[in-house]
């Protein structure tokens, strides 16, 4: 059994595990109570969300999933749109980025309920548009892609940036990309692609 010298540390761990189990049990109980209360309250409270409707890549869609679920999971699991990636799950890497009303957001931080009545565009949608095709060509010409895992997010960041600022300075371009981590490219060839887009193709985003 537990050896004497270490029993204090071990019983700490054991107790921690035990209390986790018991708190789970009590959570279950309080959740039951909460849902009883909620359902009672429900009779007098309207507006609890049962469906979320939004526009996804130009098409109206509806989801009955839990509105607190991450938009990232709705896209990947329910719509098979796996272009948005889970690189970190904490809103740091930008691999999950999508356009929400044409602004870049991290879909791993966006609850489904927040997109009600909004426009969501993923890389799959963006790459079909003229803007997307134009950004794509620039990325190809400037060597902006290596392993590719950050690339959909970078495309989204580029579209979002140029949509709001057609003539960004280099610092503004870097700032626009600051929420998208890349480990392969060192960023410069992505920055140069965007500089080209701003200089030569700016009218697309006006």
């Amino acid at each position: 059994m537990l050896s004497g010298a270490n029993s204090a540390a071990n019983s700490e761990i054991y107790n921690k595990i035990k209390s986790e189990i018991s708190s789970k049990v009590s959570n279950e109980v309080s959740n039951e109570m909460n849902s009883e209360l909620s359902s009672k309250a429900n009779n007098t409270v309207k507006n609890s969300m049962s469906k979320v409707t939004f526009v996804l890549n130009g098409q109206a869609v509806e989801s009955s999933e839990n509105p607190t679920k991450r938009l990232l999971d709705i896209l990947r699991e329910d719509h098979g749109l796996v272009g948005a990636k889970e690189g970190c799950g904490e809103g740091e890497c930008g691999g999950c980025a999508v356009l929400l009303d044409y602004k870049i957001v991290n879909s791993c931080l966006t609850p489904l309920g927040s997109v009600q009545d909004k426009q969501v565009i993923t890389i799959e949608g963006l790459s079909l548009s003229t803007e997307g095709q134009t950004i794509k060509k620039a990325f190809e010409d400037y060597g902006s892609v290596q392993c590719g895992i950050c690339t959909p997010g970078m495309m989204i960041a580029t579209a979002s940036l140029l949509h709001h600022n057609q003539k960004p300075t280099e610092a503004e371009i870097r700032e626009g990309l600051s929420g998208n981590l890349c480990r392969c490219t060192g960023y410069n060839m992505i920055v140069k692609a965007i500089q080209y887009l701003a200089d030569e193709k700016g009218e697309l985003w006006c």
């Binding site: 990947r76 749109l81 796996v82 272009g83 948005a84 990636k85 889970e86 993923t122 890389i123 799959e124 790459s127 794509k136 990325f139 190809e140 010409d141 060597g143 892609v145 392993c147 590719g148 895992i149 690339t151 959909p152 495309m155």
Partner: peptide, 22 residues
Amino acid sequence: RSINKVDNDEKITGKAVYIDDI
């Protein structure tokens, strides 16, 4: 002399399949 990388298209359009996409 550089050419367009052969996997650019799938990676840029989000079609490239990574393990968690399967």
